[in-house]
Design a protein around this nucleic acid. Structure first.
Lengths: 378, 378
DNA sequence: TCAAGGCAATTATGCGCATTATTAGCAGCT
DNA sequence: AGCTGCTAATAATGCGCATAATTGCCTTGA
């Protein structure tokens, strides 16, 4: 057993052929009119088995080939120490898919951190090249960086929907829009008429999608939209009371447990006085005992689907020595859809019930005692 | 701006020197009597700044250098989907350290899975070479594989203690032994005389360490050791009653909440009738509401310390263009300790109280009603 | 008998960098 | 002048693989 790793040259020498022949057999491709006889091919394969040869991914990559490594770039720290981790579920899916298709995952943890989020600067850039392609997770991407990505023709896939001119950014996202829409309809069908939306007024895609879904569904049912910006919990509670809402949709940046407590202080019970629908898993802390109604994002599935898509785009799929020779040039000339939207999973939960007193709001008396919040809002 | 990435040759051409000169300036090393004048060095550095050059990690590695990539090999799936993840906390620490020292993390998710655990087979083997070194996490390692690792002189570090002849396996572990010892002493100092140990009878290092700690502490205090093997919860409960224990140490493979419930069925309340000390975070499911006494493993710290150690061993630490030229050959000729044991963190918790009726066990009447368990044990 | 053409493979080259071996230039000395 | 010794750099090589360019051989047709 040689201490040095076995190379294609070793394999070739063993059966008296050239290194190039081994390479051709391995890749299955023969770009320049090269032919390998069935017999030679078999001898090479045997020699590979005997020597236990396995390609050096580094050399493969340097020579312009693929190396079965896919990158994962997270704009924020991948594994946050405080509270629940946001990327965890995605990574579970990603890892699962990676295991399935036999690729390694490269986490770009070395990227420079600017203003709390990682950046794809020139230096970070070069490092991407190690992998055949890269998954991008997080919200803080910059336009310039994306442009660069597109320009270089490097395969990448966003986890999470990304609108772009010409639909040039590939992504695997969750369908917040129809999820939110269904949430509204569920409440409406149960008799709720005053259904509010509580969330941050940011311009990220998920927020836009949720708002669009809310708006559309409310219009559908001839209801009146009520937007509540969630900066200060006390304020949110006050507004809910003022507007005598009987149900609210809660964007995931809210902390539902905190809100519930604050509501309780104002004698508004969930769900007896107020139904609550969660639009995705809350970002904050660990889940409490409450089974919130609403929907969840299929994060694991998003992760694995994204990796699969990326793998297609990167052409990282001839794996073993099996298939005859799928074309692996270009970038994603095959079928996989560049824009995949996954359905959100509705959760029945226990916080959606018919409106109080079966009439609708029944909140008039309550609201009168509540209009002036005791808390000062900083 | 050239579409192609900037290479050392480009930088060199810009100021009219050779590619080798650039390489020398970058690495700071001059193995064979090569000298670079301060002036030239400065010009090179300027050119690098101007062009935005950044090394190609792939080429670096192929040419026998380091590439600031450290591998992470987990014998089990890194991100388990069922229940709580075991590696998570380690990874948090690992990532944090990686970010600090500016290295990327390579997850070997492509390794073949044999009998439910990943293997470092020959093929998996080759892939390790991509990284400068590798972290190993998990219990299912094989002797042969480890031998191979040592033979090839590839830098690696175990997360978790590993005994080995000659102490050749580098690791960063938790001091289960003294942690367990302290747990016993805490109970004894509170008046407990009958302190049992509940755990699996496996031969892994943590179990051996815990048992050693238990044994030593019990002997210290002149107590009698009671070992209870945890296969069937009902049986465990029965034995606890039979032996009229007033406190038990619970190895982390037990599910404390489940045990507590089972105990309750036998009218044994925790902690009134039985004090319980947890020897590390339970492997199973999410933490319940109970604040268990005992200790926790500093998993995050283990992760980051391990990565730091690995980084030393791999010589992955000249980073920027700063230091004059630290020796980077050999393997870990510096100070970092190859065997690091981290102290476990004691947790006061609410399940350790003085023994019932201040006398010791006070369990005689209780045990008589309990001796025959109602459950059949499969 | 010789060119044309297909087959089966080989040789050559380069990816970007680290590193060894080598060279050019010059001062100081005998 | 010629040699040594020193500084400051360059040229050359190889890592292991992918791939373009090329070669040798054999069959076929005229």
């Amino acid at each position: 057993m040689p201490r040095r790793r076995v190379t294609q040259a070793d394999v070739a020498a063993l059966i008296g052929v050239s290194q190039a022949t081994v390479s051709f057999v391995l890749s299955g491709r023969t770009p320049s009119g090269v032919r390998i006889s069935a017999e030679t091919r078999q001898r090479v394969l045997d020699a590979i088995r005997i020597t236990g040869y396995s390609a050096n991914p580094v050399a493969q990559r340097l020579a312009g080939g693929h190396n079965q490594i896919l990158g994962v770039f997270t704009y924020e720290t991948t594994f946050p120490s405080g509270g629940r981790d946001f990327y965890g579920p995605f990574l579970i899916g990603i890892e699962h898919a990676a295991e399935q298709i036999g690729v390694d995952l490269l986490l770009f943890t070395s990227a420079r951190v600017v203003e709390g989020s990682r950046r794809l600067t020139t230096s970070g850039w070069q490092r991407l090249g190690i992998a055949d392609g890269c998954l991008l997770l997080g919200q803080h991407e910059e336009q310039a960086e994306l442009q660069h990505l597109l320009d270089t023709n490097y395969p990448f896939v966003f986890v999470g929907r990304r609108e772009s001119e010409g639909g040039r950014l590939p992504y695997v996202g969750a369908d917040y829009l129809s999820g939110t829409r269904r949430a509204v309809l569920r409440a409406a069908d149960m008799g709720h008429r005053r259904i509010g939306y509580v969330g941050a007024r940011t311009s990220d895609q998920p927020t836009r999608d949720r708002l669009a879904g809310y708006q559309a569904a409310v219009a559908d049912r001839g209801l009146h939209p009520t937007y509540i910006e969630s900066v200060d919990t006390a304020r949110v509670v006050a507004q809910i009371a003022e507007q005598s809402l009987s149900a609210v949709l809660l964007a995931p940046e809210n902390d539902p447990d905190e809100l519930r407590l604050a509501l309780l202080e104002m004698r508004i019970r969930v769900p007896e006085d107020l139904s609550v629908l969660l639009l995705g898993q809350p970002h904050h802390r660990l889940p409490g005992p409450t089974r919130w109604s609403g929907f969840t994002i299929p994060r694991e599935q998003m992760g694995s689907r994204a990796l699969l898509l990326l793998s297609h785009l990167a052409g990282t799929l001839y794996a073993g020595t099996s298939s005859p020779g799928s074309p692996v040039l270009g970038g994603g000339r095959a079928d996989p859809d560049l824009h995949q939207l996954l359905e959100c999973t509705d959760v029945a939960g226990e916080t959606l019930v018919p409106p109080n007193g079966r009439g609708g709001a029944g909140t008039l008396t309550r609201s009168s005692t509540i209009l002036e919040p005791k808390r000062t809002h900083a």
